[in-house]
Computed example of a mutant assay.
Amino acid sequence: MSEQTSLKSKSDQVHELRQMGFVIVKGLVSEARCDALREVAQRQLAEAVAPVEYEADLKYPGAPESKHAPGGHTVRRLLDAHGRHPLFAEFATSPEVRGWMELYFGETPYLSRAHHNCVMTKHPAYGSLTGWHRDVRYWAFERDDLVSAWVALGDETVENGALWFVPRSHKLAFTSDRFDDAKFFRADLPENTPLIHTAVSPKLAKGDVVFFHCNTLHSAGKNLTDQVKFSLVYTYRGASNAALPGTRSASKPEVALV
């Protein structure tokens, strides 16, 4: 499926996203641009340029117990990508992204600076597992209709902790007991197991972009290689789908793609 996606029109790609909950667009970002973005990310990671989020802050499976434990200062996310370097901001509002989002939403798209808007790093030794979840679990908008763009700044495979998606899960309704207290989809429940077994993990090459719906169930494994994996992630909404006042979703000014 993913290899054929590069031959599809944007309309076909948007249709696939609506049907499957995610779509892979091959080679959307040039190799030169990926290299430049990755170089900035590597430098800022080495210097731990604020704001950052540490694995120890999240305490996901495999993360250090605290910042004082071995690996305690392993960075998980370089936060506020849009604000931390012009190259990140330029891509977030680039014509290729704007055109794709305009087609999906049918109106002016807005970049959320409160959600995602980061460089995701996954380290070999202390990079943690990410359980099954929907991104919208902590988001608050008038409608659950947002799209994230995940850019592979290098190859992404099961071996280095690539994403897994449950196809068509964005269309499913679940009762709250299917999730734990942290709103992760419970892999220990027999009624959840068959759905999880339908998950796929698309292999991404440098410059590939995955667009996925905020209700799509997804997860990510550990990095079993010896190299840090870098991914750039942004989230977008349509102009008519405003963040609810007083929530985290409304806590930072958004950026109109015009």
Rank of each mutant, 00 (worst) to 15 (best):
P95S: 14
T74C: 12
L103D: 11
A56E: 03
Q42G: 06
A81Y: 06
G27K: 15
V75D: 07
E55W: 00
L78C: 09
H85L: 05
L78E: 03
P70H: 10
L79A: 13
V49R: 15
V97T: 13
A89R: 08
T74V: 09
A56D: 06
V40F: 06
E90Y: 04
R38H: 03
H85V: 11
K26H: 11
A36C: 05
C34R: 12
D80V: 06
E96R: 09
K67V: 14
E65A: 15
K67N: 05
E65W: 01
S66E: 01
E47G: 03
A81I: 04
D35C: 07
R98D: 04
H85G: 06
A81M: 09
E102M: 08
Q44M: 15
Y104P: 04
D57W: 04
H68W: 05
F105Y: 11
W100F: 15
A32N: 09
L58V: 08
T93C: 13
V52F: 07
Q44W: 02
D57N: 14
E47W: 02
T93S: 12
R43I: 12
R84G: 01
P64T: 04
H73S: 07
A69T: 05
S30L: 10
V49P: 00
V75C: 14
F91I: 11
E96Y: 05
V29M: 13
T93H: 02
L87V: 10
W100M: 15
A50T: 10
A92G: 05
V97H: 05
R77G: 09
G72A: 02
L28S: 06
P61G: 04
R84A: 10
T74H: 01
Q42F: 11
A48Y: 08
A69P: 00
H68R: 10
L58R: 13
E90P: 01
V29S: 10
R98K: 13
E53G: 13
S30N: 08
V25K: 13
C34T: 11
A63C: 03
Y60I: 02
P70D: 09
A41F: 08
G83R: 10
V40R: 10
W100Y: 15
E90G: 03
L87Y: 02
P64S: 11
M101T: 06
V49W: 03
F91A: 01
A69Q: 06
E96L: 14
H68E: 15
L58C: 10
L45H: 14
L87M: 05
A69D: 14
G71L: 02
P61H: 03
P86H: 01
P86N: 00
K67F: 00
V97R: 07
S30R: 11
D35V: 09
P61F: 00
P64W: 10
L28I: 04
A63R: 08
V75Y: 05
P64R: 08
A89C: 11
P86W: 00
H73I: 07
E55M: 02
D80P: 04
R33V: 09
E39M: 07
D35K: 15
V25F: 06
Y104D: 05
F88M: 02
E53F: 01
L78Y: 11
W100A: 13
R43N: 12
S66K: 01
P70F: 09
D80E: 13
H85E: 07
A41I: 11
L28D: 01
L79I: 03
H82F: 15
V49E: 11
A63G: 05
C34I: 13
K59G: 04
S94R: 00
E96P: 06
K59A: 02
